[in-house]
Design a protein around this nucleic acid. Sequence first.
DNA 1: GACTAACTTAACCATAAGGTTAAATAAACA
DNA 2: TGTTTATTTAACCTTATGGTTAAGTTAGTC
Lengths: 112, 112
Amino acid sequence: MQSDPLSATFSALADPTRRAILARLAQGETTVSELAAPFEMSLPAVTKHLKVLQRAGLVCQGRQAQWRPCRLETAPLQEAAGWIEEYRRFWELRLDRLEDYLRALQSQPGKT
Amino acid sequence: MQSDPLSATFSALADPTRRAILARLAQGETTVSELAAPFEMSLPAVTKHLKVLQRAGLVCQGRQAQWRPCRLETAPLQEAAGWIEEYRRFWELRLDRLEDYLRALQSQPGKT
DNA sequence: GACTAACTTAACCATAAGGTTAAATAAACA
DNA sequence: TGTTTATTTAACCTTATGGTTAAGTTAGTC
């Protein structure tokens, strides 16, 4: 805790249960119990996962009678995507080099 | 440990020291001590961070005399980017709705 | 062969993460 | 008012994380 937003986001994404919760929420708002249904863990465990997601700003929860409908918030995902995107240049560069290498191999067929 | 690759990747990215290490490696291969220099922590702490990055497949280490030159590996970043990308559709959709909403406001200027 | 440099491993510590069960809250319902 | 439904909070446990210092290891150098 008390970590920077990016760390909080990546940390929240570093758990398959939480990623599954986000995947479910991408299909639309739903309740805690419905979110919990697919998992074998207890409800309090899911509540905890939701708290992690909320602290990261990935989920926000409303209230409607005794239900706490959860909704996906994408802003932190956009920031995370932005961070990783910085490296795209890098991996595309490496792909280019691989292509150069393969081209070089083809132009010297007897070399191998 | 023994977690799935995506979790390992996000988990590795969920630490500012490790992200800084990756940023440094994006500029080119370098040694452990050089990687450690900017940080106030001990060398063993950096070694541990490097282990986390290696287990996530984000960094690989060679050997050259007593140095262990570290290199950035981008494959896990690409997978992580791919996962987040699934949600881009979702956040762009929400932006569209916002635009629609704003347009609707403009076409009914007296409504507010 | 001893010395130094560059790391890693081991042992330890404090705190955080992820789960549990049991008890508390909140809001509808009979 | 008492009960049920939905969810959270509290207390606890185990294991993981992130740091430390001290002791290896590995490979050049005097």
